[in-house]
Nucleic acid binder design. Structure first.
Lengths: 207, 207
DNA sequence: AAAGTTCTTGACCGATTGGTCAGGTTGCTT
DNA sequence: AAGCAACCTGACCAATCGGTCAAGAACTTT
């Protein structure tokens, strides 16, 4: 018997297939949200049969839960590593850079998250009000210290974070719109985006 | 026979009921996306029976299409009215202000749009590549003129627009996250957001 | 190579989905 | 108040949904 749960002591096949399923499910859930996705879609996407998927996971909800669980860890990591520094502006811009890289390299994860939030975050609200709020408050206090020390301009730390999150994730979540507006993007639009955001936040933060 | 299509020459009842249905459908589609929404949900939300809804609209897709059609008109209007001015920075900040007001006053429309883009904009791609791109290019050229005249700092006009769209709509689309992070927001969080965004874009644009 | 476990699937189930339809009810016109 | 069109609904349908199950196939262990 397989049935998810314990992530330890797995067969080779179990490891391969669960990963294969999660990979396909990420693709599907990121595109259609939880309610709009079907197990059959995940089956087709992964090349497995529907009963086979349900052999490894206890249901649609269980697959989604695993994806969301993994998500927050990696999603909050860049903010985790935002730490005190003698050059706060560089520190914040490095955070912006990391977030933009994640939007480029993990757009599906970004869209999975966006879909969940957009639909009221029914399966994520506790995480938002707990760990996310705690971490955000902690880093907001750090930024406030920089403000008080006159090292950066007088901005609202929480709204600064919102601006960073929204501008960077925009390139993943609204990627279709970005491409439509830019036309077939000359080279890598992420490079010009990087330059723009760097310029913007440096201008904003300069004391 | 009713059956949508012509918006002219309608009965009182037709006008009332179609509006009632669209109002409910906006609520539902904005929350669950197209695929995740059901006609039954719209029926419950509007207080009408399912067959009655299908008496006024040719199907789920038709309702969604009407909503999307209405959306783009009102959605692009603020950008439409961005025009040449002797004080470009004020002009752009007024645009930011209008966009933020729309995020506050029409969050469901914002989420409907976000859901559609997030899912690849299958029913909106033509509009994006046509009218939206045309309008965006036109206004980007206007902004570029301001840059060339040295009236604002040297920014990429398209990415400036992306930053405006993402930061303002964030307060509608990610409202759950915003509220979770801020805790029960002291007073109106849109006021502090307005101040923050005004500060940010003025700092960015100052020559 | 036999035995035991893990893995896989076609067939199936009840519930929900988008949508239809015949027939009844309501509202407007004269 | 009669007649007609507009409006509304319960019952129904085929397709799809999430999920089950018995039985067979493949892999491991001995």
């Amino acid at each position: 018997m397989a049935r998810a749960a314990a992530t330890k002591g797995q067969t080779r096949i179990q490891r391969e297939k669960t990963e294969q399923i999660l990979e396909a499910a990420l693709e599907v859930f990121a595109s259609y949200g939880f309610r709009g996705s079907t197990i059959d879609q995940i089956a087709t996407q992964s090349g497995l049969s529907k009963p086979n998927i349900l052999y490894y996971f206890d249901g649609k909800e269980a697959i989604h839960a695993v994806l969301l669980g993994r998500l927050l860890d990696t999603w909050l990591e860049p903010l985790q590593s935002l730490s005190d520094s003698s050059t706060p502006i560089d520190e914040i811009c490095a955070y912006v850079h990391r977030k933009l890289e994640m939007a480029r390299d993990f757009p599906r994860e970004s869209r999975l998250f966006a879909n969940e939030i957009l639909q009221g975050a029914p399966r994520l609200l506790n995480e938002l009000q707990g760990p996310l709020k705690a971490l955000t408050d902690e880093k907001a206090a750090l930024i406030q210290n920089w403000v008080d020390a006159g090292k950066i301009s007088a901005i609202d730390p929480h709204h600064l974070l919102f601006s960073i999150w929204s501008t960077t994730q925009h390139y993943a979540d609204f990627d279709v719109q970005v491409r439509a507006v830019l036309g077939s993007c000359e080279g890598d639009c992420f490079q010009t985006a990087q330059a723009h955001l760097d310029h913007m936040f440096r201008a904003l933060l300069k004391p």
